Simulated assay, not measured.
Amino acid sequence: MNQNEIELFVKNYIRAYLLQIREQNKFSQEKVANLLDTSRRGYVKLESDESCCDAVTLIL
């Protein structure tokens, strides 16, 4: 795998994981954003595949 493929894989994995956790726990996007210490708008961008989280958010 090259770097772009790895980045895409990680981005998709994080997105799918967050969606799964949110749906399983019936959390709102706002609730997950608060748990990740990010804005709701930033979280929505994660779910909609417009951006990826930074290292600190990933660790949390």
Rank of each mutant, 00 (worst) to 15 (best):
R41Q: 13
R15T: 02
C53S: 07
L60E: 06
A55M: 10
Q24S: 06
C53W: 08
K45W: 02
I59F: 11
T57M: 07
D37L: 10
S39H: 04
D54M: 10
V10G: 00
E47D: 06
M1W: 14
L18V: 03
K11I: 04
N2E: 14
V56M: 11
R22Q: 13
E7R: 12
Y43N: 00
Y43P: 09
E47P: 00
K26H: 14
Y17R: 07
E47M: 01
Y13M: 13
K11T: 04
C52G: 03
F27D: 02
L36R: 08
C53P: 14
Y43L: 03
L60R: 14
C53R: 09
L46G: 01
R40D: 02
S51E: 04
K26T: 04
D49E: 03
N25R: 10
Q3L: 14
Y17E: 10
E50S: 13
S51W: 05
S51C: 11
L60V: 11
A16V: 00
K26I: 07
T57Q: 12
E47S: 03
D54E: 09
L58K: 03
V56S: 07
F27W: 11
L46N: 00
Y13N: 11
Y13A: 14
N2D: 15
I14C: 05
Q29H: 03
A33V: 01
Q24A: 05
F9L: 02
V44Q: 13
N34W: 04
I14G: 00
I21A: 05
G42L: 09
